[in-house]
Design a protein around this nucleic acid. Structure first.
Length: 115
DNA sequence: ACCGTGACGGCGA
DNA sequence: TTCGCCGCCACGG
């Protein structure tokens, strides 16, 4: 995946991207869950790394939503075109949404320790 | 080295 | 249930 000259990436970012890559198509995870998977105490910090993800969509940062299952942001935007794109990508992967625009239950991916 | 800024999360109102 | 506040922690200036 990130076999290029990634000196611009911090160690933290690599951990975030690696964990994110584990999420399969058709499933989503949350910033909080991902943070926990890499032993980080801040979901917000995870979001910071994802917003500058240089490997999208190889590293599926679009499969990460908020804990309340609302869509969250995409490439720095918390609303607008990019966010709509995020929803479309998920729909294409088979992810279902409820009438409130949140990811329907039963589609969360739980990180089961491997890294 | 300090300070402000976030694709967040939990909690009280 | 939605809103606001505060805590979290990594980054750039």
């Amino acid at each position: 995946m990130m076999n290029q000259t990634n000196e611009a990436l911090t160690d933290f970012q690599r951990k975030v991207y690696e964990a994110c890559s584990q999420i399969p198509a058709g499933k989503v995870s949350t910033y909080g869950l991902l943070a926990k998977a890499i032993s980080c105490g801040s979901a917000q910090a995870v979001g910071q790394a994802l917003k500058v993800n240089p490997f999208a969509p190889e590293v599926p940062c679009h499969r990460v939503v908020k804990t309340d299952r609302s869509i969250g942001g995409f490439f720095g935007q918390r609303e607008g075109a990019e966010v709509t794109r995020k929803v479309n990508l998920l729909k294409e992967e088979g992810v279902k949404f409820d009438e409130r625009g949140r990811v329907a239950q039963g589609q969360l991916w739980a990180f089961s320790r491997e890294g």
